[in-house]
Design a protein around this nucleic acid. Structure first.
Length: 885
RNA sequence: GGGCGGGUAGCUCAGUUGGGAGAGCACCGGCCUUACAAGCCGGGGGUCACAGGUUCAAACCCUGUUCCGCCUACCA
């Protein structure tokens, strides 16, 4: 190991290629060990890796790598999603550059073109996942438009249709006039824009010259009005029962109806009802049997029903209508009003609610099982708080509009008979109409919502509808790792489909992680310009540092706020690890053969301590990962590797390594190597590249770290007494260092430490005296219960020990008194706090005995400390009064 | 309108059944101590948003207030 610093660029690609070449990520469905499987949330085939992917896949990779090392039969199933609208948009843009639209090239050629695009660019995100280190089984990679997955989609559609769970019907749907397709409710992004509330007069046709004033934000839809509705209890409009109003401009008569839906408070209390362009109005229309008049076409322009405005864009028409109404004296007033609008999640165009015939999945039936599965714990949602959100949505689920009027996607397997109107839904194109035997059949042109195929992902990727070995072994999957933003889009629907078609939940656990945000906590978006590109980060800091950062910040239920500074910080950790390994390996000799059996050996206090800590941390880190507490695992390992192993044990080891005691040297080498080996194994799931590289430096290492084994806590090495003793040493050493720091004593200046301690506390000093000397820069230690102390000395009160450091000629009275006084102040504060507790009879009476005892102990310690510090001040004053120094 | 989450050190956040307020970064001081200056040693810094309540004891449990974020929704 020559390099002083770690350089990820030299290592990461090399290892990924090696792992893949050796087939180490490949699942073996004939394995007899317990399966552990994850299906990747398939990224859009058009996508490129963003922070969300990076976090999502890092967490999955950590889990799957740990399980793989533990010897489980692991499968991480990868793949991509055909992303209907998004992909179609990309290719349409490409066409636009050639001055063509998809209609110019035709459906078949267009779809062909999308496939070509996918072949060329569809692999981008896959390669980016590899950069990140994702250990997916790429030999099984799937695509939602695969032949197999397409078959699954068709079968599901046909089955649901035959079971009465898919129907076709008229409904108000969310229409994107730019994408030319319907959108599911979930695909509409709600927004609020500045707009107006227009008060428009509709003349009453009773010849009285009266009129009714309606308030609307969308005057251009008035040509689709088929009623004016008022609240039945609204006294203002009592007299209008049975009367009709006249739609201005096109002069069509419409009834005045009474419906409790209308609020008397809002606007004028009179509502224009446009059943073909508003969901509420649609429902009112249903109740009252109103006519439905569509006035806006698929491009968002006014149609022939809009009279003189035909052909005008809906926004232009609005202005013109308002102007014309004003001219006609029918515009009462215009108020500023924030208008809620829905926009297309793909292109931000304001969606138009339009009445159209669409295909729907009856969701409430499917939701029932999906609710039950979470209620009775067959699927566990982690963190639990998301269960509530899940239930909330599931209980209020609405039918799912699954038809999309685009070309890229799974074409709905339905045919219409042009002769008799029969609708035939089947796996294969029927030769003749099943009703009239006519041959005049036309296939449905709509395709299915992309989420329809994604909903099948956990079983369709495993081979369903065939009863494959993979399906038998890996379904249900162990865990689904995903962001809460697609809890409804995806998770809920997978639950419904999995339960319906496999009669089993698709996953045992759902781990919901947070969103990655920028350091201010804003969502990263291109328009805000605050996106951090994962690939740039990987190039700059290495995938390991990046992954560690994500893991360290992935606390449950919290967003991950990311900044480059943090990633840089964790790169330092990787480097630290690298250098620790350098130190260890530099201190081995050629013939070194490790021996990890420490049971019969004469261990030093430091050995016992670090081994105990190592095993404890092994347990903690493992448990944390089992519980999806990624931050805790990362934190525990960081703390141990850096602040225990490197800061303390490595320093202590130097004492032995430079000694002539060959047995001790061998023992310390073994422990160093054992700790290093264990730590890099524990860290491998989080930072696979550097650990794999370091693994090759471990003497006697065979195979790849990827295949494990993962450390298991060795309880026989856990030693609470050893941990306590070494903590005493740490307290003592830190105390002496503190004096050194505060008194500005040069680090190289050797000190004398005169330690006063009760008999019972002296053993630990004697056993660790060499450590104390080395770590605190002490050349001589004197120890006794009532040891005589030099007059001019600094004092460190450390736990049960009082350390005097002779500083004749160096010590400055004011400095030391200030230091000790502030020490007393701190102690006094603590004493006050404890006093308040112990002085409270209720506390002593009611608190558990152990708590009271603990407080009493604490008080004794504090009082003793205070006395010792106070005494030091006194002596110091005496000394200087006598004219010392 | 409904729901959820959050307000803890200058910044970003931990704090797991209520019992001595923590980390990383930043900051200050001292060190090139042969693994690492991407480092080492030491240090300062917080009425745990606010107000009540429960309790011997509250950052933690309850109620209210306030601010922020997100999801969701058919008052035009």
């Amino acid at each position: 190991m020559e390099d002083k610093g770690y350089n990820p660029a030299h290592i990461e690609d090399k290892w990924y290629e090696y792992w893949e070449r050796e087939g180490l990520f490949r699942a073996d469905n004939s394995s007899t060990s317990q399966p552990y499987s994850i299906v990747i949330p398939p990224p859009n085939v058009t996508g490129s890796l963003h922070m969300g992917h990076a976090l999502n896949n890092t967490l999955q990779d950590i889990l799957i790598r740990m399980k793989r090392m533990q010897g489980r039969n692991t499968l991480w199933m990868p793949g991509t999603d055909h992303a209907g609208i998004a992909t179609q948009n990309v290719v349409e843009k490409e066409l636009a550059k050639e001055g063509k639209s998809r209609h110019d090239v035709g459906r078949e050629a267009f779809v062909q073109r999308v496939w070509e695009w996918r072949a060329k660019y569809g692999g981008v995100i896959i390669n980016q996942l590899k950069k990140l280190g994702a250990s997916c089984d790429w030999s099984r990679e799937r695509f939602t438009m695969d032949e197999g997955l397409s078959r699954a989609v068709k079968l599901v559609f046909v089955t649901l249709y035959n079971d009465g769970l898919i129907y076709r019907g008229d409904y108000i749907i969310n229409w994107c006039p730019r994408c030319h397709t319907a959108l599911a409710d979930l695909e509409v992004v709600h927004d609020q824009r500045r707009g107006h509330l227009y008060h428009i007069r509709y003349p009453i046709t009773d010849g009285s010259g009266a009129y009714i004033t309606v308030a609307t934000t969308r005057p251009e839809t008035m040509f689709g009005d088929t009623a004016v509705a008022v609240n039945p209890g609204d006294k203002r409009y009592e007299g209008l029962a049975g009367k009709k109003a006249l739609l201005p401009i096109i002069e069509r008569e419409i009834p005045i109806i009474f419906d409790a839906y209308v609020s008397t408070e809002f606007g004028t209390g009179a509502l224009k009802v446009t059943p073909a362009h508003d969901l509420n109005d649609f429902q009112i229309g249903n109740t009252h049997g109103l006519e439905r008049v569509v006035v806006i076409d698929d491009d968002g322009a006014m149609n022939e029903n809009a009279g003189p405005y035909v052909g005008m864009d809906r926004w232009a028409a609005r202005d013109k209508v308002v102007e014309d109404l004003n001219t006609a004296g029918l515009l009462e007033k215009i108020e500023d009003y924030p208008v809620p609008v829905g926009t297309c999640y793909r292109c931000q165009t304001v969606i138009e609610p339009i009445l159209k015939k669409q295909w729907f999945v009856k969701a409430d039936v499917l939701a029932k099982e999906a609710i039950k599965a979470v209620e009775d714990g067959r699927t566990r949602i982690v963190p639990k708080q998301w269960e509530k959100t899940y239930f909330e949505w599931m209980y209020n689920i609405r039918d799912w509009c699954v038809s999309r009027q685009i070309w890229w996607g799974h074409r709905i397997p339905a045919w219409y008979c042009e002769d008799c109107g029969e609708v035939i839904v089947s796996m294969e194109a029927p030769a003749a109409c099943t009703a009239c035997n006519g041959a005049n059949l036309r296939q449905e042109t709509d395709v299915l919502d992309t989420w329809f195929s994604s909903a099948l992902w956990p079983f369709s990727t495993l081979g369903w509808p065939d009863e494959t070995k993979d399906l038998a072994v890996y379904y249900p999957t162990s865990v689904l790792v995903t962001g809460f933003d697609i809890l409804f889009f995806w998770v809920a629907r997978m639950m419904m489909m999995g339960l319906y078609f496999k009669k089993e939940v698709p996953f045992r656990d759902v781990y919901i992680h947070a969103l990655v945000r920028d350091e201010q906590g804003s969502k990263m978006s291109k328009s805000k310009g605050n996106v951090i590109d994962p690939l740039t980060i990987i190039d700059k800091y290495g995938a390991d540092a990046f992954r560690f950062t994500l893991a360290a910040f992935a606390a449950m239920g919290r967003d991950v706020k990311l900044s480059e500074g943090r990633i840089e910080g964790y790169r330092f950790f990787i480097n630290k690890l690298w250098n620790a390994a350098r130190f260890v390996t530099m201190n081995l000799d050629d013939g070194y053969v490790p021996d990890y059996d420490f049971g019969d050996r004469d261990l030093s206090p430091a050995d016992r301590w670090i081994l105990s800590r190592l095993e404890t941390v092994t347990g903690q880190a493992t448990q944390a990962l089992e519980d999806y507490e990624f931050n805790n695992a990362a934190g525990a390992l960081y703390q141990f590797a850096w602040h225990e192993f490197c800061d303390w044990y490595l320093e202590v080891s130097k004492i032995y390594l430079s000694s002539d005691d060959t047995i001790a040297v061998k023992r310390v080498r073994d422990i160093l190597v054992y700790c290093l080996d264990t730590v890099i194994r524990l860290l491998h799931p989080i930072i696979p590249f550097v650990t794999e590289e370091l693994h090759t430096k471990i003497p006697g290492a065979t195979g790849c770290l990827v295949t494990g084994p993962f450390p298991v806590r060795n309880d026989s090495l856990v030693n609470a007494a050893a941990e306590r003793d070494f903590e005493q040493v740490q307290i003592l050493v830190t105390g002496i260092r503190n004096v050194r720091g505060e008194m500005n004593i040069h680090p190289k200046k050797r000190l004398v430490a005169i330690i006063s301690a009760k008999d019972k506390d002296q053993a630990v000093i004697r056993e660790n005296v060499e450590y104390i000397k080395t770590l605190a820069g002490v050349e001589e230690v004197q120890l006794g219960e009532s040891i005589s102390r030099p007059e001019a000395s600094a004092t460190a009160v450390c736990g049960p020990f009082t350390v005097y450091i002779p500083l004749a000629g160096v010590i400055e009275f004011d400095e030391e008194r200030k230091r000790l006084s502030s020490e007393i102040e701190k102690v006094n504060e603590e004493i006050d706090k404890v006093n308040r507790k112990l002085g409270n009879d209720e506390f002593v009476k009611k608190a558990p005995e152990e708590v009271v005892l603990k407080e009493k102990d604490r008080m004794a310690v504090l009082v003793s400390k205070k006395e010792r510090v106070a005494e030091s001040i006194d002596r110091l004053e005496d000394y200087f009064k006598k004219g010392g120094n």
